[in-house]
């Protein structure tokens, strides 16, 4: 509870400091809008040319795009400490100043950055969700709304976990950090579309290793009344938990990496 309070207070303070430069903030937020708008434009053009993708109708495609975009950018907004700021924290020695404070490292890293510019990306994603849900005539129920929230929350953990792999690479001062982008940004790009359209290796990658399909797309299929896989309906509520499992495993690896950091010294 105390940790959540600290996180919220830190976020408040970071927001305050971001708004010290309103003009720059405005420009960058606008740039983010154009960026995610460009991604959505690409989707619209694909739908314009191809109409549908197998059994997935335009509305479904908007919905898949939206759920990924909302989750991914929520993570980049509130988890910026992990998704963006960590490498420079290691390089500039800021990690040392976190180590001399009586709080968990992950907590402190998360408390040290926020990226409110992503708000426009999240807005684009929400728009896509609304369009998708209209076009596909989704009948919203309490269960579906709950599942949506569940998917987005565990998706947050999943994406945070994947970015933590990059953080671990950084601690071990491995240079090929860009490699991790293949699963983070690559995963985002690929899983804007339902994973079932991909050949087996990619499907396995995004189901078993970076389980975007389980965490976001199985629930999306349930909400659209078009199951992603031929699994019973209740699995939709269970699958997102895999995001927490992945986060847990990588969290432990991160702790081991911190142990390594403290014993090697950089």
């Amino acid at each position: 509870m105390d940790t959540i309070k600290l996180y919220i207070r830190s976020m408040g303070m970071l927001l305050k400091s971001q708004f010290q430069y309103p003009a720059s903030f405005f420009m960058q937020t606008l740039a983010q809008l154009v960026m995610e708008g460009g991604e959505m434009l690409a989707l619209i053009l694909v739908i314009d040319r191809f109409g549908h993708l197998g059994r997935w109708e335009p509305g479904d495609l908007f919905f898949f795009f939206g759920i990924m975009s909302v989750t991914f950018y929520l993570t980049e907004c509130f988890g910026r400490g992990i998704t963006g700021a960590f490498p420079s924290m290691v390089r500039m020695g800021q990690l040392d100043t976190l180590l001399i404070r009586p709080r968990g490292i992950v907590t402190q890293v998360l408390c040290s950055a926020i990226d409110p510019r992503r708000i426009t990306c999240i807005a684009v994603g929400t728009t896509a969700l609304v369009i998708g849900s209209r076009l596909s005539a989704v009948r919203w129920t309490f269960a579906k709304a709950f599942l949506m929230a569940e998917a987005v929350s565990f998706g947050f953990l999943l994406i945070l976990g994947l970015f933590m792999i990059e953080a671990i690479f950084c601690i071990h001062s491995v240079k090929s950090v860009e490699l991790v982008n293949a699963v983070t940004y690559g995963g985002r790009s690929a899983c804007q579309y339902p994973a079932t359209i991909y050949p087996r290796p990619l499907r396995v990658l995004f189901t078993a290793f970076a389980p975007f399909a389980l965490v976001l797309q199985v629930p999306a299929g349930y909400i659209l009344d078009k199951p992603l896989f031929d699994w019973p309906a209740w699995t939709a509520f269970l699958c997102p938990l895999s995001g927490a499992v992945l986060f847990g495993v990588i969290y432990m690896l991160f702790q081991r990496a911190m142990h390594f950091y403290r014993s090697t010294g950089s």
């Binding site: 303070m13 305050k16 400091s17 040392d96 100043t97 001399i100």
Partner: peptide, 13 residues
């Protein structure tokens, strides 16, 4: 701990 060349306070607040 006070590191002379590394600030631990927040820059813009």
């Amino acid at each position: 701990v006070v590191f002379g060349q590394r600030m631990q306070l927040w820059w813009d607040v």
